[in-house]
Design a protein around this nucleic acid. Structure first.
Lengths: 244, 244
DNA sequence: TGTACATCAGTGAACGCGCGTTCACTGATGTAC
DNA sequence: TGTACATCAGTGAACGCGCGTTCACTGATGTAC
């Protein structure tokens, strides 16, 4: 039974108390993350914040690693919800608008929750290996959304043809792209897919630079303008034309 | 007196032993970093590896934070040396070639030293604040090198004019660009500078995705081809034409 | 060249701390009849 | 509706561990005369 299930049913009082407790643990765990970072996440400290003795947490969470997993899933879903809401607010055929909304939503969430963002997209937590069977689905929501926008634009013919000299796609890369296309049921050709991957990494690269403080303290005051300008260029790189 | 100074002089045996010891501490500290991550970096563990009692390390390093600073500077300089060597191997006027060499050197070093890369470009270490007066110079070597290549290309007229519709640079961003241009003595206009910043963040974004495992285990087998393709696109984005 | 003293490297014990996890326990909440 | 029992939440003590940092100390290496 998942947390959502037991919450939805609002079953017995005990079950309600139980899911409330897990929610508290995750919430305070996230605060703890924000203050001390993922590597220093401590079950004991979270227990103190929850107002319970440290061993009591083991009634709800198997181990420190499982708490990390819960925080990871929670973070992915929060980010996914924000991105979905932002994208859904834009007309389905306004591909450029949806792309920008996605990018702005990622940045806004990352700046609001830098510690969660670091857990999701920063350096791996030493000694911790995320259980793929639980994190893959929430962890791929944003990229799937982005791919969905770009592929829909491609299908509708709204993507601008490639500019400049033709770029050769080497065979190994072509094979990778074919696999992705098959797995996700995409229409776009290798060239556009490869551009999409670059747009993806570049988007997160720009957000990470800002969140992780790579720009330095003083350079770039107008960071929102800088990011929006980046988005415009990435939009062009992806082949998305304005207002389509 | 810096480490390099005392080494160069090869002064007294004691001084040689001293700088050798510091070098050992940094070297083994880096190994420790690789295995356990920056947040878990422990003076005691490094001392054990060096073969000395933990308190002895305090003769050479003021505190755990100072060891982190030494590792940070060491990492920046190693990366900087690699990048410099790769760039210098290409003719000065082959701007596109130098750009690609820079990108490939960053990626190669990051994959060889993922933990150092994570310390430099990953999530910040909680509770640690790098002392700007010691880290800024080594920490800006790569970006200054990149800016140098792009600005030299601009001055020589080798940069392609902007393609596609004119992008408006808002006033705040323009002011930031003017400040950067003045500080570094650049010639390039706002438009090219802004593209340069995107190229910079995108380059590190692509490397970070690969080093931090964001691509997942199975997607993208041909990662070198993928990265080189990214570099080609970024080269185009920067306005660098082939063979110039 | 030889002696007396100062400097330095490294030792080992100790400080107080927080961590993850286990375990036997006490009450409170639920369930079966 | 009331009693007897089972389930669960939370307690508090304990385990063994590693950490950063301090301090008085022993020898070895250097320096001044």
């Amino acid at each position: 039974m998942t947390i959502a299930d037991s919450k939805a049913k609002l079953a017995t009082p005990r079950e309600r108390a139980r899911s409330q407790m897990i929610a508290d643990i995750v919430r305070l765990g996230r605060e703890h993350l924000a203050r001390h970072g993922a590597a220093a996440l401590s079950l004991r400290a979270v227990a103190r914040d929850v107002g319970v003795v440290s061993s009591a947490v083991y009634r709800y969470v198997e181990s420190r690693d499982e708490l990390l997993t819960l925080l990871l899933i929670d973070g992915y879903n929060e980010l996914g919800d924000h991105v979905d809401a932002a994208v859904d607010a834009i007309a389905e055929t306004d591909y450029a608008g949806r792309f920008k909304a996605l990018g702005l939503a990622v940045r806004a969430w990352a700046l609001r929750e830098p510690a969660s963002y670091a857990l999701l997209f920063g350096s791996p937590v030493p000694g911790y290996q995320a259980p793929g069977e639980r994190t893959t689905v929430p962890g791929t929501r944003v990229i799937l959304r982005l791919v969905g926008i770009l592929d829909a634009a491609y299908r509708s013919g709204a993507l601008a043809p490639q500019q400049g000299p033709a770029v050769v796609i080497p065979s190994g890369l072509a094979a990778d792209m074919e696999a992705v296309r098959a797995e996700l049921g995409l229409a776009a050709d290798d060239e556009f897919l490869a551009r999409g991957v670059l747009v993806w990494t570049s988007l997160f690269g720009a957000v990470s630079f800002e969140v992780f403080g790579q720009y330095g303290a003083d350079t770039f005051i107008a960071r929102e303008e800088l990011f929006e300008h980046h988005l415009s260029m990435l939009q062009g790189l992806a082949g998305l034309r304005e207002g389509h």
